[in-house]
Simulated scan of single mutants.
Amino acid sequence: MLLLGLVMTAFAVYGVSRHSIKRRLTQKISRWDERPGGVRVWLSEDEWLDRIEHRTDELFQKVRPTRIGDAYDAPQYAEQFIRLADPQNFHSLHIRAAYHDKRKLNRHGQPTLTWVPLEQLRGLPQAEAA
């Protein structure tokens, strides 16, 4: 079945990845620690990594799902990624499909590309064939 509103590489996995949170925190958390009295202390590698790991654990359950990795040509590849994903490092995994929404036009009058959950795709109007 051909869905006319879809584009090539139309399926992506959305969710929360522990690795992406940790990567962002590594850039954000300073190696300097402010102590009472305005003293700045350089943290050791272990102390800094412990601080990053602790903050990662806090944020892992709170952040909203984002796109994980590249887009796939077919939904079965995205489903395979979800099946193989380690539940310790990923959660809230779901598939979204790229959809040209003809109800929303960009400034050039072309349909806007949006990512919708795969379950909702069946209820959306089809885009015209090119």
Results as ranks from 00 to 15, higher is better:
I52D: 00
E53Q: 12
E53G: 09
H54G: 04
H54S: 07
R55V: 05
R55S: 10
T56I: 01
D57Q: 12
D57C: 09
E58P: 02
E58Y: 09
E58D: 15
E58Q: 15
L59T: 05
F60T: 03
Q61Y: 10
K62W: 12
V63T: 10
P65D: 09
P65I: 14
P65C: 14
T66H: 03
T66P: 00
R67G: 02
R67T: 04
R67C: 08
G69R: 03
D70E: 09
D70K: 09
D70N: 06
D70T: 03
A71C: 03
Y72T: 02
D73G: 07
P75S: 09
Q76F: 15
Q76E: 14
Q76T: 09
Y77R: 11
Y77G: 09
Y77A: 10
A78Y: 08
E79S: 14
E79Y: 15
Q80A: 15
F81M: 01
I82F: 13
I82N: 11
R83C: 11
A85C: 05
D86G: 07
D86S: 10
D86I: 09
P87D: 02
P87T: 06
P87M: 01
Q88C: 03
Q88H: 09
Q88G: 05
N89D: 05
N89S: 04
F90Y: 15
F90S: 04
H91G: 07
H91R: 13
S92I: 09
S92M: 13
L93F: 10
H94Q: 07
R96L: 08
A97S: 08
Y99M: 05
Y99E: 01
Y99R: 02
Y99A: 02
H100A: 11
D101F: 01
K102Q: 15
R103K: 12
R103C: 08
R103I: 09
K104F: 14
L105G: 07
L105D: 05
N106Y: 06
N106F: 04
R107S: 13
R107W: 13
R107A: 15
H108Y: 15
T112M: 10
T112S: 06
T112C: 07
T114Y: 01
T114E: 11
W115K: 03
V116D: 00
L118E: 00
L118V: 08
Q120C: 04
